[in-house]
C-alpha cells in the first residue's frame, strides 16, 4: 500500500485533557475512510491536526512523503489537503456563484497573479460547471446566507474541491441535514469525488452513511483509535458498539448482527 497520508505517534493535549493519544494510521491513495466516535472522542481534533488548525503536541504527519506537521492551514491546502466543515464555512453575503469565483480565484493565483481580474470568462465557465456538477446551479445567484442547510453544505464541499486536492476531509457532511436528504447529498458528493479520484476521510455520526460509503472505518474513543477495519468488521466490533454506537437505534441492528443482542430487542425504539 502506498500511503498518501501517515500519522505517527500523534498526541494532542489541552492542559490536563488528552484529545489525541498515540494515533498511528496510514491512508492509501483513493481510499475512502470513515472516522467515527462519540462526541469528544477526538475525531475533529484529528482532522484539525491534519489540516493545520491545531499543532500536535507530539508526533508527525506526513503527506505524500512530506512532513506537514504544524504547517499553517493555507500551506497544507496549497499542498493538496482540503476540507469542509461541520458548520459550512462559506462567504455568507456573497452569492453561490461568487463564492465559487473567489475560491477558484485563490486556487488559480500564485504570487502577483492575485492582482489579475477575478472575473475571467474561462473562470466563470468553470464555476458554472462546478455548480452543475454539485447540482446547485439553480441557486447560482442566491446569497449564501439564504440557502438551505444542505445546499450550503454542498457549496462548502464544492469550494473545498476547487483546488483539486489529493485528500479531502469532510467534517460531518450530513449533520443538520434531514434524513430524507442525507443520501441524496452524499450520492452527489461521492460521485463527484470519485470522478476526481480524491482520497476522502470523513467524520460521521450516521452509521448508515458510514456503512454505505466508506471502505474503511477508524473508530475513536477518548482520543485513541480503538478499531481500524472495513465497515463490515468495524461496525460489529464489540468495542465500537460499546463506546461508539452505544444505545442508538442503529446500534441495536449492529448488536444483532454481531450476535450481542437477540433479534427484535428494542426494535420499536
Amino acid at each position: 500500500m502506498t500511503a498518501i497520508l501517515e500519522a505517527s505517534g500523534l498526541n494532542k493535549t489541552f492542559g490536563a485533557v488528552t484529545a489525541a493519544k498515540d494515533i498511528n494510521i496510514a491512508v492509501a491513495r483513493d481510499e475512502i475512510v470513515g472516522i467515527i466516535g462519540a462526541n469528544g472522542a477526538g475525531k475533529t481534533t484529528f482532522v484539525n491536526m491534519v489540516t493545520g488548525w491545531l499543532t500536535p503536541t507530539s508526533g508527525a504527519i506526513r503527506f505524500d512523503g512530506r512532513d506537514i506537521t504544524g504547517l499553517a492551514p493555507r500551506r497544507i491546502t496549497r499542498l493538496g489537503i482540503c476540507r469542509s466543515f461541520q458548520v459550512a464555512q462559506v462567504f455568507m453575503t456573497a452569492t453561490v456563484f461568487d463564492n465559487l469565483m473567489i475560491a477558484l480565484g485563490i486556487a488559480d493565483s500564485h504570487g502577483l497573479a492575485v492582482l489579475k481580474p477575478l472575473r475571467l470568462a474561462e473562470r466563470e465557465a468553470r464555476a458554472d460547471a462546478i455548480l452543475r456538477r454539485y447540482r446547485i446551479h439553480e441557486y447560482r445567484d442566491q446569497v449564501a446566507s439564504t440557502l438551505p442547510q444542505g445546499i450550503r453544505k454542498l457549496l462548502d464541499i464544492a469550494m473545498a474541491m476547487v483546488a483539486e486536492p489529493k485528500i479531502l476531509l469532510l467534517d460531518e457532511p450530513t449533520s443538520g441535514i434531514s434524513v430524507e436528504e442525507k443520501f441524496g447529498l452524499m450520492d452527489i458528493v461521492m460521485s463527484a469525488l470519485k470522478e476526481d479520484g480524491v482520497t476522502v476521510l470523513f467524520v460521521e455520526h450516521d452509521m448508515e452513511i458510514v456503512e454505505r460509503y466508506v471502505g474503511r472505518v477508524l473508530a475513536f474513543y477518548q482520543g485513541e483509535i480503538i478499531c481500524d477495519a472495513p465497515p463490515a468488521q468495524a461496525l460489529i466490533d464489540p468495542k465500537v458498539i460499546e463506546f461508539v454506537i452505544g444505545d442508538e437505534p442503529q446500534g441495536q441492528a449492529m448488536r444483532e448482527r454481531a450476535g450481542l443482542a437477540p433479534a427484535g430487542e428494542g426494535s420499536d425504539a
Binding site: A72, A94, I102, I106, L118
Partner: peptide, 23 residues
C-alpha cells in the same frame, strides 16, 4: 476587481474559509 480585491468582503465574511482556500 482583482482576486486579491475580492478578499475584502471574503475576509469580512469568513476568515476561516479564506485560510482553507489557501490564502
Amino acid at each position: 476587481g482583482s482576486v486579491l480585491g475580492s478578499l475584502t468582503t471574503a475576509v469580512r465574511d469568513n476568515e476561516i474559509r479564506v485560510e482553507y482556500l489557501g490564502y
